[in-house]
Design a protein around this nucleic acid. Structure first.
Lengths: 130, 130
DNA sequence: GGTTAATGATACCACAATAGTATCATTTGT
DNA sequence: ACAAATGATACTATTGTGGTATCATTAACC
């Protein structure tokens, strides 16, 4: 089990690199620096462009630069882009078995852990990492 | 993304039920009460038997009962049985790219969150749930 | 002692998420 | 015009999860 996937990990490191250099960075450069497969990196950056985390520039000398402040890019934001909703447990029992979610001790305990994790992942942003 | 899978969830609820009733409980009964597929439940209980969380009794009137105290059964223990090692991120970069793990800020931050989660999951045991 | 009700062991299948790859179209600097 | 870059899209491979199916073994009960 992993909370953070490769997608997210590569994305975070790419954003960090771009954030440090404060200029347009090409996929080729990121691939050289981070050592991840080129087509995969491209796909990741394209998604970050679509989600308006990065801004892309086509053509020769093209590449990507940050579109928003590194302070505004939290880890959870990137995780949600690549991993969808972050949750610990959706309560797998059928509704008629566990009719009252409010009384389920397991669910409550787990929910509080989840809240903690999300709060922490929300606090960490790119500016804090570079 | 989910931190807790169905496997683990069903296992926890089955253990809770057995813990409350303090007697030998058959798969058939658990299936009736929890409403999960019988062969799947069997597989889960067999694993808990192998891991010495439960003790099985074969033959007519057979079933499962707790083998260890509910205080000693933490959520993390069950998660590890069904989901393997619990980690947030194994650091996906190749070793030569990220030679000094000690200096990686991302890794450090994530590690501290992971430690938190594991600490909390370790504290919650079956006795606290029932 | 045979029947029946239970688990043990094991192999198999289905689906979804993750981790990529491949290809062609489009844009832009020189 | 050409080369170097991204955009869009479709495809493939691997793995983890969530099961199912089957036969063997054990033990209570009549």
């Amino acid at each position: 089990m992993k909370l953070i996937t490769r997608n997210t990990d590569y994305a975070l490191r790419a954003i960090c690199y771009i954030s440090i250099h404060q200029r347009i960075v090409s996929v080729a450069e990121l691939v050289r620096v981070l050592g991840v497969p080129q087509p995969f990196m491209r796909k990741i950056l394209q998604k970050l462009n679509q989600q308006k985390i990065l801004q892309s520039f086509k053509g020769s000398n093209g590449g990507f630069k940050l579109k928003i402040s590194p302070h505004k890019i939290s880890i959870i934001k990137i995780m949600r882009i690549f991993q969808g909703r972050i949750g610990i447990n959706g309560c797998f029992l059928k509704k008629d078995i566990c009719p009252n979610r409010g009384k389920c001790v397991l669910r409550k305990k787990i929910q509080s852990i989840e809240d903690n994790v999300i709060r922490q992942l929300t606090q960490i942003n790119i500016a804090a990492l570079v």
